[in-house]
């Protein structure tokens, strides 16, 4: 009885080639439009095209405006990743959809008896190797992209201004270092790196100046830092990204990126002495 059963390993060794012959060749055989490769390719191209179009047009249109180089690179990252991911995902969609179109007999879903057994294909070395290699290459690309962007974003610059962000339930207050100015609105000069020293008075908050594309938690007891480089004049939003209790939804405020002159003027208007402003904005250089 057991002689009738072929051990799986035995089968692998002995029948691999035989099975490989049974499998309809992926690339070869018949006119090109009848080869599986062609069908998969058509679906793949279609799905890739859709993915790339979505990647190129949807995020940049839907995404909030950008006010900093960090947010510019977030946008670029999303576009690049979507464009890279589209053809890879489309491979799965292509194979799955082609199988469904080609090898699903009409009415099979209503039948109580299964179709005939398919080909006993228990693996395909080259396909697995190619699949793995592509994954590895993609991971390396993604990793290097991330590392590159991260290091370029967070490199401190000599002329960065440092300011303190204090979160508490449920208000953000922004302190402009030596000027002793505190505001609930975040006003920043354009084209200067800003280093935010973020801390909290009570629980953990998430400091998220949205259009600046950076984020760091505000923790009680010590400060965390994050750098942003505003590069465009205009308004932006500041939100809390970490659930912080009852009025978390209202822990939001607005910010403005202004010219250096306007910034100094604003500080003066808030009551900072010219000396303190100079100390704050110039001596950082």
């Amino acid at each position: 009885m057991s002689s009738e059963n072929i051990e799986i390993d035995e089968f692998h060794e002995g029948k691999r080639e035989e099975v490989a012959k049974q499998v309809e060749p992926f690339f070869k055989g018949g006119p090109i439009w009848k080869r599986p490769f062609f069908g998969v390719f058509i679906i793949w191209s279609f799905m890739t095209l859709i993915g790339v179009l979505i990647g190129l047009f949807v995020p940049v249109h839907v995404l909030n405006g950008s006010s900093s180089s960090q947010q510019d690179s977030v946008k670029l990252t999303i576009v690049v990743f979507t464009v890279i991911a589209a053809p890879v995902s489309a491979v799965v969609y292509g194979i799955a959809a082609y199988s469904l179109i080609k090898w699903n007999k009409r009415g099979s879903g209503k039948s109580d008896t299964p179709p005939e057994d398919g080909v006993a294909l228990r693996g395909h070395g080259p396909a697995t190797v190619i699949w793995l290699s592509i994954s590895v290459v993609l991971v390396v690309i993604l990793l290097f992209w991330g590392m590159m962007v991260l290091s370029s974003e967070q490199t401190p610059q000599g002329d960065a201004i440092r300011m303190q962000v204090v979160g508490q339930q449920w208000v953000w207050t922004f302190q402009y270092g030596s000027t002793k100015i505190t505001s609930t609105q975040l006003v920043l000069p354009v084209d200067r790196q800003v280093v935010f020293e973020v801390s909290s008075k009570d629980v953990t908050h998430g400091f998220w100046p949205v259009q600046l594309g950076v984020q760091v938690d505000a923790n009680p007891g010590f400060s965390t830092t994050i750098a942003a480089s505003p590069n465009k004049l205009g308004k932006f939003d500041v939100r809390c990204s970490q659930l912080c209790g009852l009025e978390h939804a209202y822990m939001q405020t607005t910010g403005r990126v202004v010219t250096e002159k306007q910034f100094e003027h604003w500080l003066a208007q808030k009551g900072a002495s010219p000396k303190a402003i100079k100390l704050f904005t110039t001596d950082a250089k």
Partner: peptide, 25 residues
């Protein structure tokens, strides 16, 4: 990001199993 490699293999196995099968829908 490394996790995407074995996850990709999971996909490979699923679509590889479907491939050339006589699908019973």
């Amino acid at each position: 990001e490394l996790i995407s490699i074995p996850t990709g293999v999971l996909f490979l196995c699923l679509v590889g199993t479907i491939w050339r099968g006589n699908i019973w829908a």
